[in-house]
Amino acid sequence: MLRNRKNVHYLFVMIACTAGYVWLFFQLWSEESSAVGVCMFKHATGIPCPSCGATRSVLSILDGKVLEALYWNPIGFIVMSIMIACPLWICFDWITHRETFYKFYIAAEKRLRQKKVAIPLVLLIVSNWIWNIYKDV
């Protein structure tokens, strides 16, 4: 049971990361660098969602413009570190036949559900969202 779940979980994370990389390279190679337009939330409501600007943020990091990345959306840093760390970690687990990533994920999930961790994070996301709406990303 645990083994099967772990495999599904790893597969899912890998697919998600691959999709992210494909999207990123598509953005890098396409001439016009307008990452706007993919967010259905923005299309539907007219206001940016909490993660709007993350692609532009990651592209700015790749260009070495850290401050610009921070301006677009600080979530870009989180997304980028996840996209780099997760495939490497999964490969490590796969090679050494361990399940450290899965165990870490379960432990992190448990920790995030604690009120003293969850409430500040929710406030952080909401304030970031307000900032996003204010600067109209």
Partner: peptide, 18 residues
Amino acid sequence: IGDTGLGIGKLLTCGGFY
């Protein structure tokens, strides 16, 4: 429903590009 990890994944990618 308690899938915090997947929730964060969805939040950070705007619902996985919908």
